[in-house]
Design a protein around this nucleic acid. Sequence first.
DNA 1: AGAATTTTGTTGAGCAGTCAGCAATTGATT
DNA 2: AATCAATTGCTGACTGCTCAACAAAATTCT
Lengths: 162, 162
Amino acid sequence: MNAATRRGEQVVRAANSQLVHDFGLLIKAATRLEQRIDTALRRECGISHTMLEVLIRLCRKPGEEVSQRQLADDLTLTSSGTTRLIDRMEEAGLVRRVPSPDDRRSVFVEPTDHGRTVFLQAVTVHSHVVERYFVTPVVRDDYTRLTDALSDINEALRDAAG
Amino acid sequence: MNAATRRGEQVVRAANSQLVHDFGLLIKAATRLEQRIDTALRRECGISHTMLEVLIRLCRKPGEEVSQRQLADDLTLTSSGTTRLIDRMEEAGLVRRVPSPDDRRSVFVEPTDHGRTVFLQAVTVHSHVVERYFVTPVVRDDYTRLTDALSDINEALRDAAG
DNA sequence: AGAATTTTGTTGAGCAGTCAGCAATTGATT
DNA sequence: AATCAATTGCTGACTGCTCAACAAAATTCT
């Protein structure tokens, strides 16, 4: 057997590895689910899935002051991405920018009344899709394990710098 | 208690719902993992994560003829997105377009020698990241449940049209 | 206090995808 | 066989993000 053949087998083995396949499952499930939610939200509420995530974050603790910096960190976005996202949401009347009194670099973002109204509609749509494709397909016992595992993964990703 | 207060509580409850939180875990884990892999691949092999997914698909069964259409379906991309992706990969010398003899609309995509070489390097980088942040953080017993659950979710998503 | 460093949000340029519309080819209907 | 419909890949216009560079403000270090 020559070197070329040997390498050929190596390539095929790598492409069929269990690890590669398993990881593909995660990426695919997340991508498709997000696409579905995004489509449903745009059609029924006129907002994107990312915008819903912003509203979720902003409505969590009423009265809490959330800066763009915090939003960026929580949504895994860059600061410039966040600036533009909030631009669009402000334009759509969903949120309002409020300059921080303590730190004049910082900008707080808060939901408007309209933002809260849309949020309630959107969360309903969101829940339906999640219920149908995320909760129902998984056996109850497996579900808690799934979320446990995801928590562990997120923790590992958060702790490690590189 | 007036209507406004009642609605205010409703908003807070929705933003803190378990379902919303759990789903956030999935999206966040997938997003961050993919970002990490993408960064590592770009730095160490000069290709994107999407390009690696193409190479994985193309190297699975040697001799198999894979059209752009099939690639688009497997990667959850639009046909135009696929066209441009293959454009870039062809330019980088990773793949080659071959017109199908049977169907003159269709284009087969196959990896070049260079593509296979890069693939082997890339799969190593990919495996390291996946091993570290996807396999290791999860207890072994939970791992199989996790992948089972992800399979179920993907099946539900594949079967349903809307 | 003053200088150097870090943090915050914004902007221009670019990248990687989408959608809508297209021509070429193939398949189905009659 | 002729037409009508569906599929394949491509292109222009757009979206939503990133990265790099920046000014303004805050923090740290002498």
